[in-house]
Simulated scan of single mutants.
Amino acid sequence: MSLESLTSDALELLKNLITTPSFSGEEDETAALIRKWLESRDIPCEQIGNNIIAKNAYFTPGKPTLLLNSHHDTVRPNKGYTRDPFKPTEEEGKLYGLGSNDAGGCLVSLLACFAYWHKQADLSHNLLMVASAEEENSGPNSLRGILQDLPHIDVAIVGEPTEMHLAIAEKGLVVFDATVTGTPSHAAHPNADNAIYNTIAVLEWFRNYSFPKVSETLGEVKLTVTQIDGGKQHNAVPAHVDLVLDVRVNDCYTNAEIAELLQQEAPCPLRPRSLRLNSSSIDPGHPLVLGGKALGRKTYGSPTLSDQAALSCPSLKMGPGLSLRSHSADEFVEVKEVVEGIAIYVDLLERFLKPERFG
């Protein structure tokens, strides 16, 4: 299969994916499209839930394995759309449609790259392609849910929009529920322990709090209060106000350490929802990173979460598109970004899978 024909086929697949709704947990139709795309190119694959899995033709037990992964589920379109989110429209080099940027362009680029290398022999690593489901909601049937069914993974490339630069680290996430208490009362009577007023000082504490350890790659841990809920009627002071905190964790801390620190110091009770979405990284001297830098790609730390959080191996986040477009109204990816992305993926894997060609 020529790279030119694979690129054309990948763009056609992307349009078909946009046409087909694939909200998290409802990806069966896009799973069928991906499976058909692979099988039509004589690439055997299997399906677990709505995850599509394929191995290269010369997959050899005992050889290290490189995972290529991106997701085919999407968020639901927001109310700001002025276009049909399920109608792939190409205008002035931009391909519009829900999931085009996050992460359809990445997914079809990795599929094309995998197809290019599928039947080539004497590679340094096995290749494992996983088009995963439920990434957007970190669901039980996501990549995390099928890891026990996959071969051992030694290193991974996770396809997310990074402008094809190298996200060599990714922040983790802990969501906390917090409660600020007070004395419930009738609004007509004096109350020096109003939970809503008590919340003011708590919000100020969270706004001014900083974690001492700063990462060279990922910067500071970022704490943001994202939700607040208190009171049900105009004439009653509530007994408590509920807050939600979003904490993006750098690679200086584990999520468990963040939870312990905040629970000790915060001026109100905190309950972490989960501690499993830890930060991810890859050594800046890893051959994948060095190969990408040789191709002119830059390294950086990513503040956003992806399926990297499911992996315990070194992982690199990299893909066509721009992260700021993700989940936005009238989402798009530039066609040239996908074309260039496929070429860069193929060149990167050539340096990684055939290192003898580069001395």
Rank of each mutant, 00 (worst) to 15 (best):
P320Q: 03
C268E: 15
A195R: 07
L218S: 03
G231R: 03
C252R: 13
D330A: 06
N250F: 06
M164L: 06
L67R: 10
N278Y: 12
P161L: 02
R271K: 15
P140N: 12
V214G: 04
D246H: 14
V289S: 12
E340Q: 08
I18G: 12
P61N: 09
E134T: 00
L348F: 07
E216C: 07
A343G: 02
A236Y: 05
N208D: 10
I342F: 14
Q233W: 01
T224C: 12
S109I: 00
I34H: 01
L107Q: 03
I342A: 08
V225R: 00
F23W: 14
I200A: 05
L150A: 12
T199H: 06
A188Q: 10
D307S: 08
V202F: 01
S124E: 10
C313M: 14
S280A: 15
G230Y: 03
V180N: 02
I153H: 13
D251C: 04
A310E: 06
Y58E: 08
G62W: 09
A178P: 14
P85C: 07
S279A: 15
L147N: 09
V339F: 08
K63T: 05
F332T: 00
G296H: 14
N56Y: 11
V249E: 03
N278W: 13
E350R: 14
I48K: 15
G80L: 10
A133R: 02
K79T: 15
L3R: 11
T224G: 11
N16Q: 10
P269F: 12
V335N: 01
Y345K: 04
P21L: 14
H327S: 03
P303M: 03
I153S: 12
R271Q: 15
D84H: 05
G319C: 03
D84N: 11
S70K: 04
A103F: 04
T181L: 13
G62D: 11
D42W: 03
G99Y: 06
P287W: 05
T254C: 00
P269K: 15
N191L: 00
L245D: 09
K87P: 02
K87Q: 06
N126A: 03
